[in-house]
Design a binder for these strands. Structure first.
Lengths: 215, 215
DNA sequence: TGTACATCAGTGAACGCGCGTTCACTGATGTAC
DNA sequence: TGTACATCAGTGAACGCGCGTTCACTGATGTAC
């Protein structure tokens, strides 16, 4: 990792060569997306933010979309990490951990709006960016695994399809995040905390499967 | 409604005056949004589509955002109409009608992608567009009313807050629509019909409230 | 019925802007010997 | 340890583009009398 060498504080220039431009461009893209949405990000301005000429980014990314896709991939990786941490292998109790997972979903949308927007609002085609597809799958796999484990606590006869469970929770969490959590002009007012809304939804959902919410 | 006068088929020009430019611009905006997303819509291209000079739209809309907001308002109105029709006053059975409502939600996202995008993706500030806020509220009111009525079938003691019910259903439907229904590069694959996923989700949700899904 | 006139909805040219991307180039880096 | 050289990561100027919006204007419409 030559870019973390001495003399470069992470954002400064060393001279003619930037030393860490790739990372600096990704940081700049995140800042721009956070400030103006994915549509507000431009290569030219990212270069400006990084203190570099408008042509420089093309040494590191094929085009604007490639840079955006890289941001989204990193976002999915961080997302997966946060979700996995919250789920914590289903400890101490699967149902409780499942609720923590939901909270972590909303927390990510709240705390990482730029990543979230790059992942879900940038309309990047999964087909043309296989790494993106893979990263997205890794994140969903955490949800899927959690649903598996929660479903396994139900007697075999009335056990719900865990894939469906995962999709339901994902959809509700994503809907709440889109409508009520994410900052920006389009955000709707909510007469309660988004986390409460999701938690109540997950609880009711699990109840319908015969799963108690408490200890 | 002078714009529906004789000699104008709805898209043709009559001469120096267009005769129906306001409507034509809205149609053009819808076509552009459908083709390229809300970010792909421009005043200049809408004018071109309507067969008019780039300055003409400014006789009818203060600026680009005003045109987009008008599209969103009409979208909400149509949305409310479709939802109300599906709900049908809760007939024949509230729970069944509630499921129809959910299906209508997804159908709208599927059949009217341009309206849906203008409503939910264009990041228009509700605060600066009161008509938009009002139209959005009218649409949500349908959902709210339906939830009220469904909740009323539960014995008073264990009756859930209908506002919360409405928000849960809205969130799940919106999440499914965003992730799996809406066309475009960002759409995810789903191993079942989106309608089935939502229906199962609504059904489970209602079960947890002690409401049977059948007759 | 005819005419003067106000109003309205268009025109088209122009402005300043910022973008994505390419190109020939050049300064810095690091490696082979 | 020193030097020639290949490679790499930048520069900066330029291209063509399309946009939003404004402006003075003009042709069409409709109304008062």
């Amino acid at each position: 990792m030559s870019w973390s060498g001495p003399g470069d504080g992470g954002s400064g220039r060393r001279g003619y060569h930037h030393g860490n431009l790739r990372e600096a461009l990704i940081d700049a893209a995140l800042a721009l997306i956070a400030a103006k949405g994915p549509a507000g990000f431009t290569v030219a301005e990212a270069a400006r933010l990084a203190g570099v000429s408008p042509a420089a980014p093309y040494r590191h990314f094929r085009d604007a979309e490639a840079l955006l896709a890289e941001v989204a991939v990193r976002g999915y990786d961080l997302f997966a990490e946060r979700l996995a941490k919250a789920w914590n292998g289903g400890r101490p109790i699967p149902v409780r951990a499942f609720e923590d997972l939901g909270r972590a979903y909303l927390a990510f949308a709240r705390d990482q709006p730029a990543y979230y927007a790059a992942m879900f609002d940038s309309h990047l085609a999964m087909e043309t960016h296989p790494e993106l597809q893979a990263a997205g799958d890794r994140a969903f796999a955490v949800l899927r695994e959690a649903a598996d484990q929660v479903a396994a606590t139900v007697p075999k006869g009335r056990r719900p399809p865990s894939l469906m469970m995962a999709l339901h929770i994902w959809s509700m969490a994503h809907g709440i995040a889109s409508l009520f959590v994410r900052e920006g002009p389009g955000r709707r007012k909510l007469p309660m905390a988004a986390e409460e809304l999701l938690e109540a939804g997950v609880l009711l959902y699990l109840q319908s499967l015969g799963l108690a919410g408490g200890e």
